[in-house]
Simulated scan of single mutants.
Amino acid sequence: MERRTFMRAGVLAAGTAAVSGSLMRGALAAPAQIGTGPYGALLAADANGIRLPSGFTSQVVARSGQAVPGTSYVWHSAPDGGACFADGSGWIYVSNSEVSGSAGGGASMIRFDSGGTPTAASRILSGTNNNCAGGKTPWNTWLSCEEVGLGRVWETYPFGGSAAARPAMGRFKHEAAAADPVRQVIYLTEDETDGRFYRFVPATWGNLSSGTLQVLVAGSGTSGSFGWATVPDPDGSPTATRNQVAGSKSFNGGEGCWYADDTVWITTKGDNRVWQFDLGASTFELAYDDGLVTGGTAPLTGVDNITGSSYGDLYVAEDGGNMEINVITPDDRVAPFLRVTGQGSSELCGPAFNPAGNRLYFSSQRGTSGSSSGGITYCVTGPFRT
């Protein structure tokens, strides 16, 4: 059954907005292959240097070191992982800052009205280190993850409140997080060449101050069954969390993480793969592998952050490659959705849809300058299928 069929059922059952979405579980016969994108070929670069399909437009939302238009708040350096939250008739976009605490690391938010115009912006986390990716929770907090040795997960409050470290979620080189409200767990990726895939089981759902950290246990292949085992010492010292459980499966550079409708996807940058975990069946397989693409040059390389649409499409940003965001469709085809030109020393990150699903936010971490102070956050508007 195609992913879209599962997704529709999930959205109707949950009654959620498009952005919180429910991608569906797919039964892949093989990893995604080259196909025609759902919106057609990319046109010439627009005034912002972005190649988009017909009917789509881009705008600059914020630039590092400059005030967000309509506000007095100066946007942070090196914008990275992000997410959107419904806010009345408008929404909030949050973004991490992947620099050290002394250089302004942490996270910020921008509030938009119903027309997509910024009305406010502010800092929601300060003084932390290399906040790369993260994930939103069903209770409207943003988990901002430190990509450093013995890094922490910080729970932040886009609607107001003081950020708090959540050490029970493990001390390791954190990347992304994704909430599973069915099993009441948070999935976590680790950006090491021999990183692991974890889940955190809170003692009480909605409260991340205590709970159990577990690691995925499976064979060394690219498909099969999996289970979970408790990590004895989540503090990761003196023994790293990834080395504490025999039989835990290693992943080459864990990056993005996305959950929807009994499925979780993760990306691994070291081998340009997207992995798919069927949580109901406790099986895993490859949703994409650039080394298994036939019939042409693999369109997606440098896989990084990942998000999904209400239709069931996966959007994967590149750290390198052709500076593209690629789409993997429910019928397992992969194609470029957009390409940023003239920014070869940057990376794309933080893709997230607004609640209506007609705007896609993302950042170029180092922009045209190639420096963390040159980051640019964009919004693409158009006829996304929903």
Rank of each mutant, 00 (worst) to 15 (best):
S345Q: 15
K136M: 06
A163E: 07
S371H: 12
P336F: 02
N358A: 00
P38Q: 10
F277H: 00
G135I: 04
L125N: 07
S72D: 15
V217D: 11
T212C: 07
D313F: 13
K269N: 13
H76I: 10
S363A: 15
Y378K: 00
E175H: 14
D80G: 01
M1D: 11
M7P: 12
R199D: 05
Q59P: 09
Y378C: 02
P138R: 00
A78R: 09
G221Q: 04
A179Y: 04
A78G: 02
T341E: 14
A17P: 14
G26A: 12
P38E: 11
V185H: 04
D289F: 09
G295N: 10
N131S: 10
S209E: 15
E175L: 09
S144I: 04
S89Q: 10
L143I: 06
S369I: 10
G312F: 12
R196M: 05
D304W: 03
G40F: 04
P31F: 04
L43M: 12
N272F: 10
S114R: 15
T128Q: 09
S345R: 15
S54A: 14
S223D: 05
V74D: 01
G342L: 04
D235M: 14
G291H: 03
I328C: 01
A352L: 11
Y39D: 07
V303L: 08
I266S: 00
G302A: 02
S210Q: 14
T294W: 12
R199L: 03
A133M: 12
F337V: 05
G35I: 11
S363K: 11
A179H: 00
N96A: 09
Q66G: 07
I50A: 01
T239E: 10
G105H: 04
V264Q: 04
M109P: 00
I325M: 13
Y288F: 13
S100L: 13
G10P: 09
Y198T: 05
A67M: 04
C132A: 04
A32F: 06
G312R: 08
A260E: 15
A133R: 09
A103Y: 12
N252Q: 09
G151M: 00
Y361S: 03
T71H: 11
T141A: 07
N48F: 06
P38D: 09
A298M: 05
F284R: 02
G81L: 10
E175Y: 14
P351R: 08
G236N: 06
V340D: 03
G127E: 08
D235C: 12
T301L: 07
G291P: 09
S162C: 03
G115M: 03
D233C: 01
C145E: 05
P299K: 01
R339K: 15
A260K: 13
W75R: 06
L150S: 06
S95C: 08
S64Q: 10
T117Q: 15
E324C: 08
G320L: 05
G104F: 06
Q33R: 14
